[in-house]
Design a protein around this nucleic acid. Sequence first.
DNA 1: TCAAAAGTGTTCTTATTACACCCATGG
DNA 2: CCATGGGTGTAATAAGAACACTTTTGA
Lengths: 230, 230
Amino acid sequence: MLDLNKYLKVVVTVDNVIFGFDEAELKVLLIKRTEDPYENQWALPGYFISDNEDLVDAAKRVLAETTGIENVYLEQVGSFGAPMRHPSGRVVTVAYYSIINIKDFKLQASSIAEKAEWASLQRISNLAFDHEEICKKAFKLLKNKIKIEPIGFGLLPPKFSLTSLQILYESILEIKLDKRNFRKKILKKNILIELEESQKDVPHRPAKLYSFNRKNYEKLLASGYSLDIL
Amino acid sequence: MLDLNKYLKVVVTVDNVIFGFDEAELKVLLIKRTEDPYENQWALPGYFISDNEDLVDAAKRVLAETTGIENVYLEQVGSFGAPMRHPSGRVVTVAYYSIINIKDFKLQASSIAEKAEWASLQRISNLAFDHEEICKKAFKLLKNKIKIEPIGFGLLPPKFSLTSLQILYESILEIKLDKRNFRKKILKKNILIELEESQKDVPHRPAKLYSFNRKNYEKLLASGYSLDIL
DNA sequence: TCAAAAGTGTTCTTATTACACCCATGG
DNA sequence: CCATGGGTGTAATAAGAACACTTTTGA
């Protein structure tokens, strides 16, 4: 039997890039570190893995422990293992990302994180470690994914206006879209349910509200269909 | 200063999924293992990382040591760290992939690998560890990448016929393409140079040969252009 | 002269782009 | 009655899909 002790062993951590959408802006969840190194600096919610724990399970556990967020689907960003990325020694991290509706979760402090906060994507410079690089790679993956999968709906409340949806796409893809063309295209996909409800108490014509037709999307998927929203 | 010795340390390996193209078929490079576990079984070329070595550098070194292949560009597939993926204990692996022209490299045996061999993609079941899963994920990434970047040319000799190029796209994307439409589309991109040469000694009308116009592609890229081949 | 792959255009259908005005509401 | 964002259609252009026969070569 192979003796693994002959080989280099390193510390492995997991980090999470959680995207949310609020006030018409894409945000990312950061924690304020309470531990050395980078004490009191902003960082991605991450920590060490435990034994007998799959990497994605470690990421879920750490996310819950540092921010209170539970039950989210995580997708892998990749591994980051530059020899000096951690000032205390060799640490390889495996990063995950997800997108959530900010209003669905209440952020909690923890022993590891003094506080968790949603930060604008424009303000992710000066993060601890190589976390800015990790954020950027996650954002790139998010951009590619939203073009072919209806993941944007996870960032919105269950009932939303077409304008909110358009702003969401514009924020993530960093482009401007034509209102009429966007509506035509998204409605033709048959993955939205037009509700009876409209916005209330807005100082302009209230927008019709829609919800995501998950059932129909899954039916379309099953019949071998690629979304290709934009 | 944080003492990393308080935390779990695990063995980290790197594995490589090297794609090649030969006899009109997409292949992947495998080694026959000479070490326990999975002795004498086929596996991806991989091994343990060293200290003070970035992950991608480890992957390059290991690839050279196990197969003799050097100087290739590696892209990360991701990390795989299920607790029982290695029978001897906890081992997290970071996988990379690349595509090369088979004829450009001579495969060499090594102490770790009795021999290296190109295997058809259809024959990657029964690999050691979770290497089949890793191959599948790498193949998915390759499929997506070839749609938007001209990486296919790396799999072909410097001079190739349009039919070879079409077969290459068909193999990777696992679809059939219309000959006329494919030619129209690829020629319109302005990334091919039509050579004076033709095939020789073929028992049918010889095909014109083309080469990849890298300079022009880079110029197009710089002017903010997305390839979108298919 | 046969077999095998190379090479070549047109038509039809579908998707994409560009663009400007009236509507409903709260203040 | 004003400000604000909601909602709507058409025409022009570009891209994609479908399709079959002739050509060149070696054997």
